[in-house]
Design a protein around this nucleic acid. Structure first.
Lengths: 233, 233
DNA sequence: CGGCGAGTTGAACGTAATCAATTGTCGTGG
DNA sequence: CCACGACAATTGATTACGTTCAACTCGCCG
């Protein structure tokens, strides 16, 4: 439908592979949609009927066990792509961590369009490869890093991803930002409990590596030491 | 170069997207190569100069920290694709767990060929999406499962993947197989120590869920209970 | 028979989980 | 504006799971 020209992620999302008229054709297949905090776009195990581009906001991809343990397996930022094109049920749920805006398509419509647009698939492939690399780095974190190393890594990752998804060109990373998640969700990303997250944050604060002005805000005071801690010296 | 027609993974590897003459063209760009157990094909952090298809054998993808901790972030079986096409240094190393045979290409040659063959890229995209799903399932394991749940999951995963990569059509999974890795490597996949792996295997044996005739062999005696344990009741 | 490496088993320890209480923050209504 | 309630976060005490360190067993090859 709408004015993709004015889209906030026009140059970064996979749409950037398309020419003006291709873009117009694609936009007819989808629509913009607001998603409020906590709302689930796709349920774990359901057939994945939709895919989407994130325009604004942050969403989580999560998996849970029968007895209720949850693991967040991905965090999605503006310009990122959501969903499982070309078949398959979604092995994870997609839920908004903050209020968000997405450009949403039915999977069948998107698949059909993608089939005829190799450049789009190429972009999607690159994005998926990047996402896979990120997932694997996170596997190292979950399998082998200590609690404090995990926290340090998360803070730096957030600093980077929020940095590059915001005013971009200026800052590759941010020294002060608001976490798009609460303590429980940090635990779910890191494979830790809420109490451990809290304790480790306090430790980093006491060591003057960070400040925590309020429950969401983080200020990085000593990036060097934080990086040293994160990469598991 | 060679007789792709006779290739063991002809119908399952990404090459299956290609017609006979396309295949002939691609095969001129690569060559078959044996890799012996323990040999590293790509080093972590090096520029990824090669990509490959696995014909025979099993390889690991691994990441390690400065102080020597290792995490295996992927295990690659026959017909799987190895490498990071389209730029970037490889964020993980690739090392043979068993003697292996691969069909290897320089990245530049492969990239050039792939650029003109959307069907190949499509296959590659599907494979990468599957790999990403698997990585995310493994994140759940590493972040939230207990030691015994992890071991059970690994045994079932091996049963499945060895099953479908072998005589295939007959068995979707195997009840008896040889692990393509030692205890240390199992630990590196599961984010556990060698001692914990050993103890948990003994427990499963004592509970009559499995047998361990020798150090590599596993026989699944009670798949039901093993599955129940793995999926974290 | 001896030596080596892989694997198992045992005992003590430590990190993070669990259980529980307290503090802090935000939104609502008096 | 403050009091209240609900929820998020912190802090504390205890427990438990997996790690660490160490001894021992097994299978294999010289």
């Amino acid at each position: 439908m709408s004015d993709c020209d004015a889209c906030l992620v026009r140059n970064r999302a996979i749409c950037s592979a398309l020419s003006a008229d291709e873009l117009a054709a694609l936009s007819k297949l989808g629509r913009k949609q607001m998603v409020q905090r906590g709302q689930t776009l796709v349920w774990e195990g359901d057939e994945a009927l939709v895919v989407a581009n994130v325009i604004q906001g942050v969403l989580k991809l999560s998996v849970s066990t029968a007895d209720g343990r949850e693991q967040i397996v991905g965090v999605v930022f503006p310009s990122d792509f959501i969903g499982r094109p070309f078949g398959k049920e979604s092995p994870y749920g997609v839920t908004a961590l903050t209020e968000a805006e997405v450009c949403i398509f039915t999977r069948s419509a998107f698949d059909g369009f993608a089939k005829d647009h190799p450049d789009l698939q190429h972009k999607l492939l690159q994005r998926t490869l990047d996402e896979l690399d990120r997932a694997r780095q996170w596997m190292m974190l979950l399998g082998r890093k200590t609690a404090s190393e995990r926290i340090a890594t998360l803070l730096l990752e957030m600093s980077n991803r929020l940095g590059s998804s915001s005013c971009a060109a200026i800052a590759p990373f941010l020294d002060a930002f608001d976490l798009p998640m609460d303590r429980q969700q940090m635990g779910d990303v890191l494979g830790l409990t809420i109490e451990t997250v809290s304790r480790q944050l306090t430790k980093l604060k006491d060591a003057d590596m960070i400040e925590l002005p309020d429950r969401r805000r983080v200020v990085i005071k000593d990036r060097r030491r934080l990086e040293q801690l994160a990469s598991a010296a």
